[in-house]
């Protein structure tokens, strides 16, 4: 196992930890708004680390481009979904947990 493989394994494990932490936040946080925090931030970083780990293993630069594109598309989808859920909750008068 070379150094690139070791870095990949480390990045994938770290990314997985952030997904786990995001899920813990989803379960433990008290209301819809705080749960959204857990999902968007932890998944942004978790997926970013997983993508970085996989990019090291990519055989071509085109493959790296594809992976980065996946990350960006997920970011766009997650941030707008998060905004829409939070906005819908506010408009329905769901008051934040203080």
């Amino acid at each position: 196992m070379g150094i690139p493989d070791a870095i990949t394994i480390a990045l994938l494990l770290l990314g997985g930890l952030f997904f786990l932490a995001g899920t813990v936040g989803l379960l433990r946080f008290p209301d819809v708004y705080t749960r959204l925090h857990a999902l968007t931030k932890a998944d942004n970083l978790g997926l970013g680390l997983v993508i970085a780990g996989l990019a090291i293993q990519a055989e071509t630069w085109a493959g790296v481009g594809k992976l980065v594109l996946i990350w960006l598309l997920v970011l766009v989808a997650s941030t707008f979904a998060c905004h829409l859920v939070a906005r819908a909750a506010l408009r329905r008068g769901i008051s934040p947990w203080i």
């Binding site: 930890l17 952030f18 925090h37 932890a42 970083l45």
Partner: peptide, 9 residues
């Protein structure tokens, strides 16, 4: 941001 929310969770 990821570290912060992971820690808080």
């Amino acid at each position: 941001g990821g570290l912060d929310v992971a820690w808080r969770a």
